[in-house]
Structures are given as structure tokens and as C-alpha cells.
Amino acid sequence: MTFDWAFLLGTLPAFFRALGLTVELGLIAIATSSLVALLCSSVLLLRLPVLGVLVRAYVELARNTPLLIQLFFIYFALPSLGLKLSGYSSAIVALTFMGGAYLTEVLRAGIEAVPRTQVEAGMAIGLSRWQLFRHVILPQAGVFSLPALFANFIFLVKETTVVSAVAVPELLYTTKNYIGLYSKTYEMLAVMTALCVLLFVPLSLLFRALERRLRHAQFGS
């Protein structure tokens, strides 16, 4: 079998656009998911009556179903309910739906990890609710949550590959598309693998380094 370098080089621009789209989707999903998670975890922290139940139901539903089903429901089923979204929008909505739930869970666990005595000590020296949250809970919960938060950010970027199923021309869709069109399976898999390694391995290494630093940060305090 011969390796068709010329063909490979010809597809590179498309692949770099695809890589860009993967990164773009990942970053947008991280931002929107974080926003949803901040809202949801505030609801849980403030113990709001009805909203609290809704948030918990949402978190369980989103965490216990596959992203692919969520994506298909949004892309194929919502139009018959009157909401038609493009593949790109569906991808972002689905990633946010799933990511928001995962990040809510991370933030909730971080807040719960702050020792009860810290809150009581804060109240004893007369801090207001907001001051308590701002100066006592948030900094400590933040340190507790950060490793899991970053792990979930990376998880979200990896999950963007699933949205290839609704024809969003990211890395995997582009690969599959070219394989289908030109049968250059060997070359396309090589490009896909190379770009995946280029994107995901550094992310993974970065995460390990961060994790090590944060573990030491906890001991010093």
C-alpha cells in the first residue's frame, strides 16, 4: 500500500479548520457550562425550595444519559416541538446541557468540602452572608474544586468529538467525510491521530502538572 502524501497535504487546510472548530466548540462549551454550573450551584447553596429540586433533577438526568442521546434529542426531536436548531447550535446546547450538570456537581462537592467550622467561625466574627461566601467559602471551595474542574474542562473538549454525529465539520466528521469520499483511509486516520495527539496529550500533561501543584497548595494553607 502506498501512502499518498500529496492527497494528505491537500486535505490539511480542511483539517486545520476542523481542529479550530473542535477547539472553538470546546472553549464555548466550557464557558457556557461554567455559567450554567455557577447558577445551578448557587441555587443549591442557597437551598431555594422549588428550584433546588429542579436543579437536582436536571443534574441527575444529564449525568445519567449519554451525550449522543441528548444531542439527537435536541437536533432531531426539538424541531417537532417547534424549536429548530442547526447542527452547530445543537452541539453547543447539548454540550452545555451535559457539561453544566457535571460542573454543578463539581462545584457542589467543592462547597461541601469546606469544613463546617470555617462557616461557623466566619459567622462568629460577624461576617455577612456575602462576606462569608466571598472570603471564606469561595477561596477554599475553589481550591478543592479546581482539579476536578479542569478534568471536566478537558472531558468537555474530548466530548466535542461526539457532535460529529450531527454533521458539525469538526475533526472526526472531517475524517469520516474524507474516508467516505476518497477512501484514503490510511492517510486520513494518520492525520486525525496526529492532530488528536497534538491537541489532547498536551492538555492531559498540563492537567497533571496543575494537579500536582494544587495538591501542594492545599498542604501549605
Binding site: K158, E159, T161, V162, S164, L172, T185, Y186, T193, C196
Partner: peptide, 22 residues
Amino acid sequence: LELFRAIPLLVWLYLFFFGLPL
């Protein structure tokens, strides 16, 4: 471990499905 953690599951599926026969 790092290899399977770093690369998304769907990418592995494609690699094995399309790549293994080759």
C-alpha cells in the same frame, strides 16, 4: 492509561474500526 485517557473514546472507535483492517 494516559493514551486511553487523553484520546477521546470515539476517536479510538474510529481508529480500531477503520484502521485495524488496514
